[in-house]
């Protein structure tokens, strides 16, 4: 996903001279093409996320469309108040991109895990939250965020996630991204869980002949309320799969909506991470297995 981000932001900045890219001393060589193409619009802000966020806000008040980029926990919780007061309060067109969300950096330890960012960012007024599921969705979400001219948080995985879409598309913020239609069961896959969720859907078909519908959530705020309302009528079970804690996460957002609308919350199953500081999990793959986020665990929940 991060290579797709680097490619798309470079493409966008070619024609849109308002775009400036601010990075927190990360992405060694990742932005070489951007720097070559638009040297006056790339800034390494150093390991200083609070300042980077404030600087982005200042540039936005002077007509630029800044994009900040660093590892998820440092670009969200570390500079939370700058996001809230400098960007969201005046409603400025800044896009905050967190890379390596969830357990992308499982082996780096709890300092680099991000299982709380959606929950925390979701409390901020005016902030759109986008959760692309593969490289194609990253490009589509980034274009939509820049186009929207509103504060937006984009949650990226790392690199090498399976590519699910076979062609580029235009994303409308606040809509789910349909992947495969089906009956009875629905999986709402959040961000970088799309590959794993797809495998679970395939296994369900192969092993149990289940025709499961799957969408990529696309946007946690605003929610696709129309889709959700229909889904609660149409499906027997709705699974929300996220590499994030349950508290405040995407599943929690859907649950809040279902509660408000008096929908049948018994249909909902959340597949999310327990609230804990993980240690010794090694790889992302192992961490997912341990937490019940791997395709077999999803399959088990689907077929209970």
């Amino acid at each position: 996903m991060r290579n797709a981000f680097a490619k798309e932001v470079t493409e966008l900045a070619k024609d849109n001279t308002k775009i400036v890219l601010l990075a927190g001393d990360i992405g060694n060589r990742l932005f070489d093409r951007f720097k070559e193409q638009s040297p006056q619009r790339f800034y390494n802000c150093g390991i200083a996320e609070a300042a980077m966020t404030g600087i982005a806000a200042g540039m936005a008040t002077a007509g630029y469309t800044p994009i900040t980029y660093t590892i998820t926990p440092f670009n969200t919780l570390r500079c939370l108040e700058q996001i809230k007061l400098d960007i969201c309060y005046p409603n400025l067109p800044v896009t905050i991109v967190g890379t390596g969300a969830g357990l992308s950096y499982a082996g780096l330890g709890a300092t680099h895990h991000s299982l709380d960012d959606i929950g925390v960012m979701r409390t901020l007024p005016n902030l759109q939250i986008l959760v692309p599921g593969d490289a194609i969705e990253v490009s589509a979400c980034l274009r939509a965020a820049v186009e929207s001219g509103r504060p937006t948080y984009i949650r990226l995985g790392k690199k090498g996630e399976p590519i699910i879409h076979d062609k580029d598309f235009t994303y409308k913020i606040g809509r789910v991204i349909p992947i495969k239609s089906g009956a009875r069961h629905l999986i709402i896959s959040v961000g970088n869980m799309l590959g794993e969720s797809m495998v679970a859907v395939e296994k369900a078909k192969d092993k149990y002949g289940l025709d499961t519908e799957i969408v990529s959530m696309g946007s946690v705020y605003p929610l696709d309320k129309k889709f959700l309302k229909n889904a609660f009528n149409k499906f027997e079970r709705i699974l929300i799969v996220e590499e994030h804690g349950f508290v405040g996460g995407a599943g929690s957002a859907v649950l809040e909506y279902a509660y408000e609308e008096k929908l049948d919350t018994k249909k909902l199953t959340s597949i999310a991470c327990a609230k804990s500081f993980l240690s010794g999990v090694g790889s992302q793959e192992n961490a997912r297995r341990k937490l019940g986020l791997d395709s077999d665990s999803i399959l088990a929940k689907l077929t209970i």
Partner: peptide, 14 residues
């Protein structure tokens, strides 16, 4: 502690 960074962004943009 917020104002300086925002002013820096404005100065840079201008």
């Amino acid at each position: 502690g917020h104002g300086l960074a925002v002013a820096v962004g404005m100065a840079l943009a201008n």
